[in-house]
Simulated scan of single mutants.
Amino acid sequence: MLRAILFVLALGVAPVWAEAPTVTVTDATVRVPLPGKDLTSAYFLLHNTGEEARSLVAVSAEFAERAELHEHRTEDGMMRMRQVDAVEIPAGEKVRFASGGYHVMLFGLERRPRTGDPLQLILTFDDGSEQTVKAYAVSVFDRPHHDH
């Protein structure tokens, strides 16, 4: 290793070290689509461990024709969903993508995921970096129900 570093320095070329991503992605899930539907949503937790704000600008998935960043927001007493261009992750903060808030809409599903299936999402950030994330398919019907 030392010999390789000395060789690169002798060439007058600065070595390039792979930087660890400043945004980590955890808890990634994709909802199993409802019967007869070819769209679904994805959720995860973003944590910016860096000292500068970052933004998630795109998501893609090999099993969907397209993916869009969306948010739910209450406007004039009505809950509305709208597409957004980016989601900012402030320095040192966490942003959760969850039902009723930010989420990823996946359209034109090329295959129907079943509960437990591993799926890949590719997240693109404002600096052009990408992270491939393993998500697992979950169904709203798999959750325990409580009688009230």
Rank of each mutant, 00 (worst) to 15 (best):
residue 1 M to C: 08
residue 1 M to V: 09
residue 2 L to P: 00
residue 2 L to C: 01
residue 5 I to Q: 12
residue 6 L to K: 13
residue 9 L to A: 13
residue 14 A to P: 00
residue 15 P to Q: 05
residue 15 P to K: 01
residue 19 E to Q: 15
residue 19 E to C: 07
residue 21 P to N: 02
residue 21 P to E: 06
residue 21 P to R: 06
residue 22 T to Q: 14
residue 24 T to C: 06
residue 24 T to K: 07
residue 25 V to F: 04
residue 28 A to G: 05
residue 34 L to Q: 09
residue 40 T to A: 03
residue 40 T to G: 04
residue 40 T to P: 03
residue 48 N to M: 00
residue 48 N to T: 10
residue 51 E to V: 09
residue 55 S to M: 06
residue 55 S to Q: 15
residue 56 L to H: 02
residue 56 L to Q: 00
residue 58 A to Q: 08
residue 60 S to Y: 04
residue 62 E to H: 09
residue 62 E to D: 15
residue 67 A to W: 01
residue 68 E to N: 06
residue 69 L to R: 01
residue 69 L to E: 05
residue 71 E to T: 12
residue 74 T to W: 09
residue 79 M to Q: 13
residue 79 M to A: 03
residue 79 M to W: 11
residue 80 R to I: 15
residue 80 R to V: 15
residue 82 R to F: 15
residue 83 Q to G: 10
residue 84 V to H: 09
residue 84 V to D: 10
residue 90 P to G: 04
residue 95 V to R: 12
residue 96 R to L: 14
residue 97 F to I: 04
residue 97 F to H: 06
residue 98 A to S: 10
residue 99 S to N: 11
residue 100 G to E: 06
residue 101 G to S: 14
residue 103 H to A: 13
residue 105 M to G: 12
residue 106 L to I: 02
residue 110 E to N: 06
residue 113 P to I: 01
residue 116 G to T: 08
residue 122 I to N: 05
residue 124 T to H: 00
residue 125 F to K: 07
residue 127 D to C: 04
residue 127 D to H: 08
residue 131 Q to M: 13
residue 132 T to R: 15
residue 135 A to I: 07
residue 135 A to H: 08
residue 136 Y to G: 01
residue 136 Y to R: 08
residue 137 A to E: 13
residue 138 V to M: 12
residue 140 V to W: 11
residue 141 F to S: 13
residue 143 R to M: 12
residue 143 R to Y: 12
residue 145 H to F: 12
residue 145 H to G: 04
residue 148 H to M: 06
